[in-house]
Amino acid sequence: MMAVRSTFGRTGNHPDILAGLVFIVVGALGLWAGRDLRVGAAAMMGPGYLPLIISSLIVFIGLIVTIMGLVRDNERLDVIRLRPLLIILVAVAGFAYAAESLGFILAAIWLIGVGSMADRETRLREVAASIVVLTTFGILVFIVGLGVQMKLGPF
């Protein structure tokens, strides 16, 4: 089983702690990205005025949520399964990479072929059928019908 259970600590509300940490990271990222922007004053706001306020607010809320999460009743994270998470993200990332260099057909085959592996019950015959049907559908509807600007093959 590719299942990971949260093992840290017996107390604390784990979803809240995770939320708090994500908020702190995002807020800190905002503060860092906006560090060179002119802040200005309320009457003449510079481009960095609101990003500074909002990012600080996110970090602040992140701290509160984390601290509250640490003292609140125990609640574990839902089971995290790495298989669907990684496979779906890799499938879409591969599509992004292939779309511009290899063309729609190969990108779609990759996306559907790899993406189908995310479900354990998937059968090979079904995947093959999905690839053929969906790729053909995509070519006809998206590329020919709607005129999406993507080349079909690598050449």
């Binding site: 779906i88 993200l89 499938a91 879409v92 990332a93 599509f95 992004a96 990479y97 779309a99 511009e100 990108a107 779609a108 996306l111 559907i112 993406g115 189908s116 995310a118 479900d119 019950e121 998937t122 079904e126 999905s130 969906l134 995509g138 998206f142 709607l146 999406v148 600007q149 993507m150």
Partner: peptide
């Protein structure tokens, strides 16, 4: 659902790509 979600994935990817015709947006969507 296992037959449905590959189709949904394809719609997601092509849709994101088609907004400004670039793969960068699809990568950002990941």
């Amino acid at each position: 659902y296992r037959l449905l979600y590959p189709a949904i994935l394809l719609f997601c990817c092509v849709g994101v790509y088609s907004v400004s015709n670039r793969a960068f947006d699809v990568a950002l969507a990941v």
